[in-house]
Design a protein around this nucleic acid. Structure first.
Length: 508
RNA sequence: GGUCCGAUAGCUCAGUCGGUAGAGCAAAUGGCUUUUAACCAUUGGGUCCCAGGUUCGAGUCCUGGUCGGAUCACCA
């Protein structure tokens, strides 16, 4: 009967826009009064209360700000004391305490929007609330006897029910499966948890968003244009990886989820986009690990009339700028290592490995197996063997070397760039070499792309390009060991009910 | 795919040598008009991941499986 769950709740605008809990507590006048009280409380002993006259003076000023109307989720179970109660509301980021006194509050009807006439209606509504429910309240700001900023509630409106119990308020959710499968529960638990050692889940993904927007801003500011190239492609190319295969019914052809946008972006360089980027998902049908997810986010960009050295300079600037914007600094701790983004080393692969006279294959094996994990500080490894760089221009000084680099941070590859091969004839030959590798059983060798050769044949200006792993970079700046902790909904096996699992077991 | 570890109340966990299934939080009821991990009293709550086996008796031991994690391989 009636509308138990209202469609909306109009919040006040003390803070300028709609008053979220975060914006009310951050509002200059409110924040100033709260910090004055914090200073008083900081000077008190254990269990000691702030002087009443100081508190009352601040409360006078808070009353002068007028009423606020805020809404949020009950962040804790209500602390009820007979005919008055305290509880914290959360907007997912911050929390604010409210104080409900039986005689002072009226309940707002979800049907008429007016105050319910019955005596004690608000108190009855409040009594039915559980940890996790959503309510809206209107009242005035004040500071309690113990010195906490709170809202003295005059109007109370029930907004939505939490049918499932909230996660443990002290421990949050420990099971990584639930954290990753039910990210909504993880976000709630993390925002309601009382003590935190690390960033909340919300903060991790806000930091990720800030990193990405800073990267976009930096690229836009330097004249790059964002484009979107096909995710479903007739050929899986641009990287060495196994693709996902799907089928287009109307055309009756196989399509591959892209493993890299590289060749499309370079077609655009041919077409006249001198600075172009794409920041989006790639798909690789390979193993899952703490640093591999089947779909991952990569930034790729290309710049005409630039070479591998210019690209390293630019990459360094881009990362400094965006890490600074996302974290507020250039030094951060990752798994106990202090990582300094203020300067990047540059080493040739042969210098890094330290072995002369090794063949290309031996060099790569040594590098992957031994050296890679030791590269903790941001380090560009340059001079890759040409044989493993089919899209990269060869060095004019040494035809066995590619003008290519990879960036390593904390032993993990974060970026990969090179001077782009723009000779259509040589590119054709490199593709033929790759096809031969494929015939010898290398499933990840590239395939021939005739249209790409045709594009290069129209002439591509000298250019440099790069791919930057956004998920891995996010791991660095949020101190997360697993890529699944920086992807909102990481790939997992489908959830199976108990009886389905039994049936499955029976079949095998 | 190999190896190791784990799964017990809604949540976080304990469970000794194989002998009646436990705590805190959450929930329910009562009390308490400035509390804050509120407090006090009372109550309810279990497919001990699943299927077999050993045993008089299995949360505990054995076998197989499911799911998850770590690590190695793979993956620039």
């Amino acid at each position: 009967m009636g509308n138990a769950y209202p469609n909306k709740f109009a919040r006040s605008r003390l803070s300028g826009s709609e008053d979220t809990i975060t914006s009310v507590t951050a509002h200059a006048a409110v924040a100033e009064i709260a910090s004055e009280m914090e200073a008083i409380v900081a000077g008190l002993g254990e269990g000691e209360r702030p002087p009443v006259e100081r508190k009352d003076a601040l409360n006078q000023r808070l009353r002068g700000l007028g009423n606020v109307r805020i809404a949020g989720r009950l962040a804790v179970p209500p602390r009820v004391m007979g005919k008055a109660a305290f509880v914290h509301l959360s907007d997912g980021i911050s929390r604010l305490q409210i104080y409900v006194r039986k005689q002072d509050a009226v309940a707002i009807s979800n049907v008429t929007g007016d105050a319910l006439p019955e005596e004690g209606a608000a108190w009855e509504v409040f009594g039915n609330l559980d940890h996790g429910d959503f309510i809206g309240v209107e009242g005035y700001l004040f500071i309690t006897n113990t010195g906490e900023l709170s809202v003295h509630v005059e109007k109370l409106q029930f907004l939505a029910k939490a049918m499932l119990p909230m996660p443990d308020k002290m421990h949050g959710i420990a099971d990584p499966e639930i954290r990753q499968r039910q990210r909504y529960a993880d976000l709630i638990a993390s925002s309601l948890q009382i003590e935190h050692e690390a960033l909340t889940t919300r903060e991790v993904f806000e930091r990720r968003a800030k990193l990405i927007s800073s990267i976009r801003n930096y690229l836009e500011a330097h004249g790059y244009i964002e484009v979107e190239t096909p995710m479903l492609t007739p050929k899986a190319t641009g990287a060495a990886a196994k693709p996902f295969v799907t089928h287009h019914n109307a055309l009756d052809i196989e399509l591959y989820a892209r493993i890299a946008p590289e060749l499309y972006l370079k077609r655009l360089v041919v077409g006249g986009f001198e600075k172009v980027y794409e920041l989006n998902r790639n798909f690789r049908n390979e193993g899952i690990s703490y640093k591999h997810n089947p779909e991952f986010t990569m930034l790729e960009f290309y710049c005409a009339y630039m070479d591998v050295n210019g690209m390293m300079d630019f990459c360094e600037e881009l990362l400094r700028e965006s890490v600074q914007k996302a974290t507020g600094g250039l030094k951060l701790t990752y798994e106990g290592n202090e990582i300094d983004f203020s300067s990047f080393r540059r080493l040739t692969m042969r210098e890094a490995v330290g072995g002369d006279g090794l063949s290309d294959a031996e060099l790569l094996k040594e590098f992957d197996g031994r050296v890679e994990e030791t590269l903790i500080q941001p380090t560009f490894i340059v001079d890759f063997p040409k044989s493993v760089s089919p899209l990269s221009k060869a060095s004019p000084e040494d035809p066995r070397i590619a003008e290519r680099f990879e960036l390593f941070i904390n032993g993990m590859e974060v970026a990969n760039g090179f001077s782009e091969l723009n000779d259509p004839r040589e590119q054709y030959e490199r593709f033929v070499d790759q096809m031969n590798e494929r015939d010898r059983g290398d499933e990840e060798a590239m395939v021939m792309d005739e249209d790409y050769i045709r594009a290069l044949s129209y002439g591509m200006p000298p250019a440099a390009g790069i791919g930057i792993g956004i998920d891995r970079l996010t791991m660095m700046i949020t101190n997360k060991h697993s890529i699944r902790d920086v992807i909102l909904f990481p790939h997992m096996r489908p959830e199976r009910k108990g009886h389905e699992a039994d049936e499955q077991a029976g079949e095998e």
